[in-house]
């Protein structure tokens, strides 16, 4: 089965105990697309991401990436094929300077041999990547210990760690949450630049306004089920979505 899609998710199920976290989720993702996944709290967004990246094994269903079945593979194998993600909760090495935090992704077999990989000048590449996500070089922010950096920088450090893996598909799990408006405004151009570079992106978000400005397509989840799929404006018109968000939007 060959298709032009980068990622195909079909009939994905996951239950934790008796709770259906993800229920019959299917979607396709074309190369270069920016897909937003939204939904009320507990609607299974993060679980869906965990299923795709292999941190959780699906109960049923299939995930294909570049026409290859990756269902149930361990995370490190999935990353090596070019899917990188960020975590909602950032947990860097607090005692190390920010640029040293980049060593682990740069040590990855995926970037081995590439610029900044095992055989390159990793510190320099780390500093470049951090500058790209807004660690001002002149202010030596990248040299500061992660423990003294504010949340906004830590989130962007997380983003830089994912970019360091040179992924084709980048999955951002609530990158904007916990950021101030100014920080969000500073992060949006980074994502737009990544799109220009041709990366395919999935964003799980609660900040709908910012997401709708950049997303090509939006999927709405509720109780683990996909209730809408389409352009941002169309999706928000849908009756099911209005019901799901009633009271919160």
């Amino acid at each position: 089965m060959s298709s032009e899609f980068l990622l195909c998710v079909s009939g994905l199920y996951k239950n934790f105990g008796g709770v259906q976290a993800v229920h019959d989720l299917s979607f396709d993702l074309a190369p270069g697309e920016l897909l937003g996944i939204i939904g009320p709290n507990g609607s299974g967004k993060t679980t869906a991401i965990n299923l795709i990246t292999g941190f959780v094994k699906p109960s049923r269903g299939e995930i294909t990436y570049r026409n290859k079945d990756i269902t149930g593979q361990p995370p490190y194998k999935i990353v090596r094929q070019g899917i990188a993600r960020t975590f909602q909760m950032v947990k860097p090495f607090y005692q190390l300077p920010a640029y040293k935090n980049m060593i682990i992704p740069l040590y990855s077999p995926r970037v081995k041999g590439m610029v900044g990989g095992k055989y390159g000048d990793r510190d320099a590449v780390a500093l470049d990547l951090l500058e790209e996500v807004g660690f001002e070089r002149d202010a030596y922010v990248a040299y500061k210990a992660a423990s003294v950096l504010p949340q906004g920088y830590l989130k962007r450090l997380e983003l830089a760690k994912a970019i360091a893996l040179q992924p084709d598909l980048l999955i951002l799990d609530e990158l904007f949450s916990g950021l101030s408006l100014a920080e969000v405004a500073g992060t949006v151009p980074i994502i737009e630049k990544l799109r220009i570079e041709g990366k395919t992106i999935i964003m799980v978000e609660h900040r709908l306004k910012e997401l709708f400005r950049i997303a090509d397509r939006v999927i709405v989840l509720n109780y683990g089920q996909k209730i809408a799929d389409g352009k941002a404006e169309d999706v928000m018109e849908s009756e099911a979505v209005k019901n799901a968000y009633l009271g919160t939007e």
Partner: peptide, 12 residues
């Protein structure tokens, strides 16, 4: 410290 994050870097 954080094995998830290490795994997420494609490291076994």
């Amino acid at each position: 410290d954080n094995d998830r994050s290490v795994m997420n870097a494609g490291i076994n």
